[in-house]
Structure formats: structure tokens, C-alpha cells
């Protein structure tokens, strides 16, 4: 068994021979058992990365490994819920789950699947086409959790849920992750949505990895400082800086301990993400870059 759930190196995906790159030079490594937030603005390549990991798309260049093997070989152990929660509208919920059992012989956990559906007060005899967006999400999630995946890939899972259902489903997911050690990667363009439940962050911007690592480590590696205007910020890596009047505020990646007279605070995750997205030229911080620097 490998301790890496999801790994990519030099990963790139271009749609069509002349199309733009949806993803380029993507290097990442996600240890098993983590709950990873995949964050980035619309069109950053989040869905492409998840589809590559789920074995629905072939990379144009580079390679992607899930659970120690190629995505095509890991289908039985990877759960995936696409952004628009595709389900067969003509089937009932019960039929949908029976289909999950039929397509995953030998590794279908009917109890888990039924529990996820039952928690939403859904009638198993209801047709999928009669469900609301949130109810569909719940059934799609039940289908993905029923196969008891080692890696669960969720593309914008909470987008069409009300806050209560969101809280509820997140609880279900976290319980699953804790009970079976499932690695979860979920994408969103709303950072706050994932902050409480995730311990790992993967920030995509413009088809590239901007930040990758444990959230705590990433926060600890950055500092928000307020210093007099004109202060030389070298040798620290400046992600973003702004001068207002006589004060310069900046988000830094300190190269060494900061001078004690600088007013430094730990940034919030949202600040960290927004600073990196606003400044696409700032040096990315990913394990690959750390290794290269070491």
C-alpha cells in the first residue's frame, strides 16, 4: 500500500490540438488520508485535474498516479462526483443504488450508501428526475461512497446545497474519511466553504499549481507584515505588497526570521489564497518547488 493517494508530475491537458492548456506543468503530491481543498477561480483547471485523476480524461503530457497506479487501473477504488451530479433520471433512488451494487461487485457497501440517502429523508422509490439539486448531490454522493473508495474526488460538491444540507453532508464525508481513512479531494471556488474541514490545500490558478501543502504549514510559511513605506523587504519572497500613505503592507514568505520591529501576523487562509490569485507572477509554493530549492 502506498502512502501517496494522488500524485502528478509535469501534468498538462490541452483540449483539441490548437486549444489552450487547461492545465500545465502541474506537479503535486497528496499523502493518503488527507482531506484536500482544491481551490481556484473559475476556469483554473480544477475540474480537469479531477477528471484526469478519475481516469475520465487522458493527460496531454506528464503523468498522474492515484493510489499508486494509473487512474485507469484504479477505477474500482476511486470515487468521483462530477460537478453537475449526473445520474440516470429515469431510475429511482433505490434502483440507482442497486446499479451501484451491480457495477461494483465485491466492494459495495450497501449500508453506507443507504445511510447517506436515508439521512436526507429521501424516499427510495422517488425517481431521480424528481429530485432537487441538493437531493441529487446526496444520491450522487451515496453512489460514490457506496463503493467505499480509497480516494474520493468531488467536483464542487456543495455548490447547490443550502447551508444546513452542506453542513450535514460535510459531516457525512468527514465521518467517512475518519472511519475508513479515505482521502478526499474536493474543489470549490469558495475558500471559506472548505476551510474548516480540510487539512490540505491545492490552489490552482491559470492552469498551474500556485500553492500546495498542509494548510497549517502554508499559513506558517507566510506572514502579513505592516512596515513603514520604503522598507526593503529582501530577502523575503513578496507575494503581494501595497503602499497606503506612509505604510507598506505585504504578504511575505519569510526567508529568515523577520526583524522584531516588523508588525507580523499570520494571514487567514482566504487572504493567502486571494493574494496568490491576485499576483499570478508570485513564486508558487509547492512541494516540487521546495525540493528544487533544497
Amino acid at each position: 500500500m502506498t502512502d501517496t493517494a494522488f500524485e502528478a508530475a509535469g501534468l498538462g491537458k490541452r483540449f483539441g490540438r490548437r486549444g489552450g492548456w487547461a492545465l500545465r506543468d502541474c506537479a503535486l503530491r497528496l499523502p493518503a488520508g488527507r482531506v484536500c481543498a482544491l481551490v481556484g477561480p473559475n476556469g483554473a483547471g480544477k475540474s480537469t485535474l479531477l477528471a484526469l485523476a478519475a481516469g475520465l480524461l487522458a493527460p496531454t503530457e506528464g503523468r498522474v498516479t492515484v493510489l499508486g497506479t494509473a487512474p485507469a487501473a484504479a477505477r474500482a477504488r476511486v470515487g468521483y462526483v462530477a460537478q453537475d451530479k449526473p445520474l440516470h433520471p429515469q431510475l429511482t433512488i433505490a434502483d440507482t443504488l442497486r446499479m451501484g451494487a451491480g457495477l461494483n461487485p465485491g466492494h459495495w457497501d450497501a449500508d453506507t450508501a443507504e445511510r447517506v440517502v436515508a439521512a436526507g429523508d429521501l424516499d427510495p422509490k422517488a425517481k431521480v428526475r424528481s429530485l432537487s439539486g441538493g437531493q441529487r448531490t446526496r444520491v450522487a454522493l451515496a453512489l460514490a461512497l457506496g463503493k467505499r473508495p480509497g480516494l474520493l474526488l468531488l467536483d464542487e460538491p456543495m455548490a447547490d446545497l443550502d447551508p444546513l444540507a452542506r453542513h450535514d453532508l460535510m459531516g457525512t464525508l468527514m465521518a467517512q474519511a475518519a472511519q475508513y481513512g479515505t482521502t478526499i479531494v474536493m474543489s470549490s471556488h469558495v475558500v471559506a466553504e472548505l476551510e474548516d474541514s480540510c487539512d490540505h490545500l491545492l490552489l490552482l490558478g491559470g492552469g498551474r499549481v500556485r500553492l500546495a501543502g498542509e494548510i497549517d504549514d502554508l499559513l506558517a510559511a507566510h506572514a502579513r507584515v505592516a512596515v513603514p513605506a520604503g522598507t526593503d523587504l529582501a530577502p523575503h519572497t513578496v507575494v503581494e505588497s501595497r503602499t497606503t500613505g506612509r505604510q507598506l503592507t505585504a504578504l511575505l514568505r519569510p526567508a529568515s526570521p523577520l526583524p522584531s520591529d516588523w508588525r507580523a501576523t499570520t494571514p487567514s487562509l482566504e487572504e493567502l489564497v486571494l493574494s496568490h490569485l491576485r499576483n499570478p507572477d508570485a513564486l508558487a509554493l509547492t512541494p516540487a518547488h521546495e525540493e528544487a530549492a533544497a
Binding site: 477528471a51 475520465l56 462530477a82
Partner: peptide, 14 residues
């Protein structure tokens, strides 16, 4: 178009 083909491919069916 609806993604149900992709759904099957992520359900242990190549």
C-alpha cells in the same frame, strides 16, 4: 452529454 457515461466509468467499469 449528461455525464452518465462518465458516471459508469467511475463505477468500476472500464
Amino acid at each position: 452529454e449528461s455525464g452518465t457515461a462518465q458516471l459508469t466509468w467511475t463505477q468500476g467499469v472500464t
